[in-house]
């Protein structure tokens, strides 16, 4: 069971209080009506499948209730950083960045 640092509670807490909530930093298009079908599909469904450092959203569901972002290495399953939802993606670990391979969807 992982321990996850909540950037709002500022504590490392048991995974049981958290929920995974998908890939991070996917901006909703400002004008959905102007999107082509392909663009809209990409926004809705196309996700990266990274072998290495992956930016993702988590929610501290059974704690402060907040969504936040995390950078987690998908090979070691270790959290490199967690950060508030508006903050930009931090640089990952050297090893994680090196092994960042995007698998074709």
């Amino acid at each position: 069971m992982l321990l996850i640092h909540c950037p709002y509670c500022k504590e490392k807490l048991p995974e049981l209080e958290f929920e995974y909530a998908g890939q991070a930093h996917i901006a909703r298009p400002l004008n959905p009506a102007e999107q082509s079908d392909a663009e809209w599909r990409d926004y809705l469904f196309i996700r990266s499948n990274v072998r290495g450092d992956h930016a993702e959203q988590w929610r501290h569901t059974h704690g402060c209730g907040r969504y936040f972002n995390a950078l987690r290495n998908t090979v070691s399953d270790k959290f490199i950083a967690t950060y508030e939802i508006e903050q930009p993606r931090p640089t990952g670990s050297e090893e994680g960045e090196k092994s960042n391979e995007q698998l074709e969807s």
Partner: peptide, 21 residues
Amino acid sequence: PRNLRELTVGCGVRTVFDSVQ
């Protein structure tokens, strides 16, 4: 599952108790 020793007197948190919030 929390480390209850770290919950100080006069403090409260939302957490789980056997998966009950």
